[in-house]
């Protein structure tokens, strides 16, 4: 009767429906995204940090003015994802890219779909493709993905 060789497994889901307050600095960034633009913040020595932080990560100084950047930028680094996983923002092959927006001094992580890694290169110019205005909520996914400017790498 006792089959001690039984092996069990079960699907579990752990879920927390968090909503968090974002504060004035990140709030300015998300408000910008919802309104279809990208903003950064000025840190020590006037450098522009995107996405904005409450303090300069190098010096700890408080950051000051919110400034518009981009919308175009340059790819500073990237990583190719041939087989996206279920929670990835795109379900077709894509590159994680670090983008330094025009007018910014730091890079911002997002995605760029492409048919292969040979379409992605450090130094290429890209621009964000925003979701339609009615669908934007103030979230990083208000930028659907990036596209190459002027015909790719």
């Amino acid at each position: 009767m006792a089959d001690e060789g039984v092996h069990y497994s079960a699907d579990h889901v752990l879920e927390y429906p968090y909503v968090r307050s974002v504060g004035p600095t990140v709030g300015a960034f998300l408000t910008g995204l919802r309104d279809g633009k990208v903003v950064g913040i000025r840190g020590t020595g006037g450098r522009v940090i995107v996405p904005p932080t409450e303090y300069d990560p190098d010096t700890g100084d408080e950051t000051t003015d919110v400034v518009d950047v981009g919308p175009e930028g340059v790819v500073t680094s990237w990583s190719w994802v041939p087989r996206p996983r279920p929670k990835h923002p795109l379900q077709t092959p894509f590159a994680w890219i670090l983008v330094r927006f025009d007018g910014a001094d730091t890079s911002f992580l997002h995605v760029m779909p492409a048919s292969g890694p040979d379409e992605v290169a450090t130094g290429m110019r890209v621009r964000p493709e925003f979701a339609p205005e009615a669908e934007r909520v103030g979230h990083v996914n208000d930028i659907l993905h990036f596209v190459a400017v002027g015909g790719g790498a």
């Binding site: 092996h7 069990y8 497994s9 968090y18 909503v19 968090r20 709030g27 979230h139």
Partner: peptide
């Protein structure tokens, strides 16, 4: 201005109780 952000966390996983707990569970099943 945007002041709040939905940040749901979700972890889908397969739990495998292993040999010892499997024996306990096999008992419960009977």
């Amino acid at each position: 201005p945007v002041t709040m952000m939905a940040a749901p966390m979700r972890l889908d996983y397969v739990f495998t109780p292993g040999v010892a707990q499997g024996k306990n569970m096999h008992g419960l099943e009977r």
